[in-house]
């Protein structure tokens, strides 16, 4: 029984099954906190605790999934190419806004977290929090963060950004549809984009583009800013 529980076949099937069930649950009860990734994580952590299966073992047996995560980052290059035609006349303003947003995002989270006394590994885990998870994980890992914490932070930030984003933008008087979509995608990645889609098609498309641009900019800036800080 124990060897079966520890087998690659079982752990992969279980992970996929739990994930699919979490997706169905979310469709039945649409609530931001029932995010399929959060639910799957909670169920699987419970499973490992109950059965005593070692996390190292679980991680090793599900490595295929990690590999696909890296490959899906590469696939974002296709989306970036697909979206780039949406911005024709606004290339400069978009590049500048994303650059500024990326710097502000990294510096603010680092300073606030340090000020509140967070350990270096925690700070490193939070640096890429505005970026789409696969890129955030890669960055977090290479800068000494804890990938598991990064994945949670990214989801929480996405859920939160999707909810408060339109309100913040209204409060500071941002009416431009491009600016709205850009801000949502830059701060809250795919979850911000989902919300931006509800605002309109232009907002949604620009927001999708912002995810890719923010990801690349942040991935490049974090190692540079880390040397300066």
């Amino acid at each position: 029984m124990e060897t079966l529980l520890n087998s690659q076949l079982f752990l992969l099937t279980l992970t996929l099954g739990v994930y699919l069930a979490a997706v169905v649950l979310r469709q039945r009860f649409p609530c931001a906190l029932l995010h399929p990734v959060l639910v799957s994580m909670a169920v699987l952590i419970g499973f490992l605790k109950l059965t005593g299966v070692d996390y190292e073992c679980y991680r090793e047996k599900t490595q295929v999934i990690d590999f696909l995560l890296g490959l899906s980052v590469v696939a974002l290059g296709y989306v970036l190419h697909d979206q780039i035609r949406n911005i024709r006349g606004n290339v400069i303003s978009i590049v500048v806004s994303i650059f500024v947003g990326s710097v502000v995002g990294i510096l603010s989270v680092v300073w606030i977290a340090r000020w509140l006394g967070a350990a270096p590994a925690i700070v490193a885990s939070l640096e890429p929090k505005s970026v789409t998870t696969p890129i955030a994980l890669a960055v977090s890992e290479s800068s000494g963060g804890i990938p598991a914490l990064t994945s949670i932070a990214v989801i929480v930030v996405g859920v939160f950004g999707g909810i408060v984003g339109p309100w913040v933008l209204r409060r500071i008087g941002v009416e431009s549809r491009i600016a709205q979509g850009l801000a949502m995608g830059a701060a809250a990645h795919a979850l911000g984009t989902a919300r931006a889609m509800e605002l309109g098609a232009v907002e949604g498309a620009i927001s999708g583009l912002a995810i890719g641009l923010m990801g690349v900019t942040t991935a490049v800036l974090i190692p540079i800013l880390e040397r300066l800080l």
Binding site: V96, S97, V104, I112, A113, A153, L169, A188
Partner: peptide, 21 residues
Amino acid sequence: AIIVASLASTVLVIAVVGWVE
């Protein structure tokens, strides 16, 4: 620290990107 830093920084990013653009 984790929650405050992440959420405050998120609001800042939304405001800065929208405003600058």
